[in-house]
Amino acid sequence: MSWLEMLAVFGAGIAAGGINTVVGSGTLITFPVLLAFGLSPVTANVSNTIGLVPGSVSGAIGYRRELAGQRERLLKLGTASLLGGITGAILLLILPADAFKAIVPVLIILALVLVVVQPRLAAWVKKRREQDTGPAPRHGGPILFAAVYATGIYGGYFGAAQGVLLIGLLGVFVHEDIQRLNGVKNVLALIVNGVSAVIFIAIAEVDWVVVALIAVGSIIGGQLGATVGRKLSPTVLRGVIVVVGTIAVIRLLTS
C-alpha cells in the first residue's frame, strides 16, 4: 500500500468515525475505499470492523452525558446486541466468500435506502411518540430485544447503517429523548463491532496496517462526531454516503 493509499484509508477512518457517531453508516465510507485498493471483500470487511472499534469507543465516550441513568437499559439491550454480533460474525466466517460477495451488494443497497429515508423515519418516530401517551415497557419489551438481536446479526455480518436501524427501533419502542437514545445506539453498535472484532482477530485473515489506519482515524472522527458533527448538514452527510455506497455496489458487482 502506497503512502497516498494509506492517507486515503486514514481519512476514510476519520470520516467513518464521525459519521458512525452521528448517523451510523461509516462502513459505507471505509469499505469501498478498501475494495478500491485491492483487498478482498471479506478481508476488507473484517479489517474494517476491527479498525472501527476504537472509533466506536470514542463516540460512546463522547455521548457519556446522555448515557447517565441508562445502565439497566444498556445491560438488557446490550445482551441482545452481544448475542446478535456473535451470530453475525460466525455467519460471515462459515459462509463461503462467494456468498458474502453476493449478499453484501443487497445489504449495501438496503443500507443506502435506510440512509435516504432516515429523515422520514425520524419524523415518523417523533410523530408516533407525540401521539402515543399510553404506558410502554420501560426498555422496549421483548419485541425490541428481538429486533436489536436481529440488527446485531446484520451488524456482525456486515454492519453498514446498523446505527440507522438501531436509532429507528429505539425511537419507536422507547419513550426517551432522542439524544439519549443516540448514546444508547452508539454503545449497542460498539458491542456488536467489539464482539465481532474479537472473533475476527482469533479466526479470520486481518490486514493490520488497514486496522491501524482506520483505528486512529476513527478515534479522531468519533470525537469530532460527538462535538461538531451535530452541526453538519445531514443532507450533505447522506449525499456522501449514498455516492460512496453506490460506488461500492458497482465495485462488488463488476469485480
Rank of each mutant, 00 (worst) to 15 (best):
M1P: 10
M1T: 13
S2E: 14
W3H: 12
E5A: 11
L7I: 03
V9F: 06
G11P: 00
G13S: 06
G13L: 10
G13Q: 12
G18P: 09
G18A: 10
V23E: 06
L28A: 15
T30C: 01
F31Q: 01
P32Y: 11
L34N: 02
L35W: 01
L35I: 02
A36V: 05
S40W: 00
S40F: 00
V42D: 14
T43R: 13
N45H: 08
V46R: 00
S47Q: 09
S47H: 08
I50E: 04
G51R: 08
P54V: 07
S58C: 09
A60E: 02
I61D: 06
G62F: 12
G62I: 10
R64E: 13
R65H: 14
E72R: 14
R73F: 05
L74T: 05
L75R: 09
K76I: 14
A80W: 00
A80G: 15
A80N: 12
S81W: 09
I86T: 07
T87I: 08
L93S: 11
L93R: 03
L93F: 09
I94A: 10
P96K: 03
A102W: 05
A102R: 12
I103S: 04
I103T: 11
V104F: 07
P105S: 05
L107S: 09
L112D: 01
V113G: 07
Q118S: 14
P119A: 04
L121Q: 08
A122N: 15
K126T: 11
K126I: 04
K126R: 11
K126M: 04
G134D: 06
G134T: 14
A136M: 14
R138Q: 13
R138A: 15
R138N: 11
R138T: 15
R138D: 15
G141D: 03
P142T: 09
F145E: 11
A147G: 00
V148Q: 05
A150C: 12
I153R: 03
I153D: 06
I153H: 07
Y154H: 10
G156P: 00
G156V: 11
G159N: 09
A160C: 06
Q162S: 13
Q162E: 14
G163A: 11
G163F: 11
L166W: 01
G168R: 08
L169Q: 12
G171P: 04
G171H: 00
F173N: 05
E176S: 15
Q179I: 08
L181F: 07
V184T: 15
V184E: 06
L188E: 07
L190D: 07
I191G: 04
I191D: 01
V192E: 13
V192F: 06
N193W: 10
G194C: 13
G194E: 13
V198A: 15
I199D: 02
I199L: 15
F200A: 04
F200Y: 14
F200Q: 01
I201D: 02
A204C: 07
V211F: 09
A215G: 09
V216D: 06
G217L: 07
L224S: 03
L224A: 12
G225M: 08
A226Q: 07
K231E: 13
S233N: 14
S233T: 02
P234S: 00
V236P: 00
L237A: 15
V240S: 10
V240C: 10
I241R: 08
I241Q: 06
V242D: 08
V243M: 11
R251D: 12
L253E: 02
T254S: 12
